[in-house]
Amino acid sequence: MDITLFLFQLMNGVQYGLLLFLIASGLTLVFGVMGILNLAHGSMYMVGAYLAYYFVNTTGSFGVAAVISAIIALLLGILIERTLIIRLYRRNHLDQVLLTIGLIFVFNALQSLLWGNDPLGVTVPTWLDGAIPLTDMIEYPVYRLFVSLLCILIGIGMYLTINRTRLGMLIRAGESNRDMVECLGVNINRLYTLVFATGVALAAIAGIVSAPMVSVVPGMGEHVLIACFVVVVIGGMGSIKGAFVGALMVGIVDTFSSIMLPQLSSMMIYILMAVVLLVKPKGLFAH
């Protein structure tokens, strides 16, 4: 493999990894702070993509559609937390798993009822619809670079929020000691609602920005869910930094194994996870 090709593939891997990070960050945040394993996280990714499709077609502007969709996702997150998740905090973790599986069913059915089952597409917004020629054969679409940049910015934003603000301090405190935070006079319920809704919104944003690059189809959320779990576990549950590193590892390993080890490529990310867990049973950056 010559050096240009290597760099291209590295770019492909990083781009895939960054997108995985965006989806996985919400999952790891919710688990880290609230201890909730949200299996419906993939459904939120799907919801984001379908909302984007719907609002792009009604408003005609991708930007407007993205903002509206993200707000709806945030509200949806608040609704789910306030009506359902809140009843399960004092219950077994497995009950939460069951509840979120119920949610997967509901969202799949609603998607089919509202938008039908045909594969749908969203066109890339015109102001990002260019490409940068890299060689005489290959060019790189501006939109995909934009998405990568966005993922990095959101990552940095999350990192700063968690480590540099009062809210972040509370989130970190909530992770380690729920009662302690309550003693400080902070309304922990409100904090939980905020965190859960943010998690949902992050998945939905990933769905929204993915919509122009992928096909919007039923079941799209379930495919990314497993990859996200792999990412989160490699990085260490609850660690944003871990999710970032894990996502890049998964993206790059998956990309290169596709080309260099095609017989093993379907298993490669699982092999990666198994190896990481054997060396570090709690992931790379566990608390």
Binding site: L84, R91, L99, G102, L103, F105, V106, A109, L113
Partner: peptide, 19 residues
């Protein structure tokens, strides 16, 4: 045909109802 909807709702209700 949309059996997933009642199925999902019922699963959720059962989790909430049965400890």
């Amino acid at each position: 045909e949309n059996w997933m909807l009642p199925m999902g709702v019922l699963i959720i209700l059962m989790v909430l109802a049965f400890r």
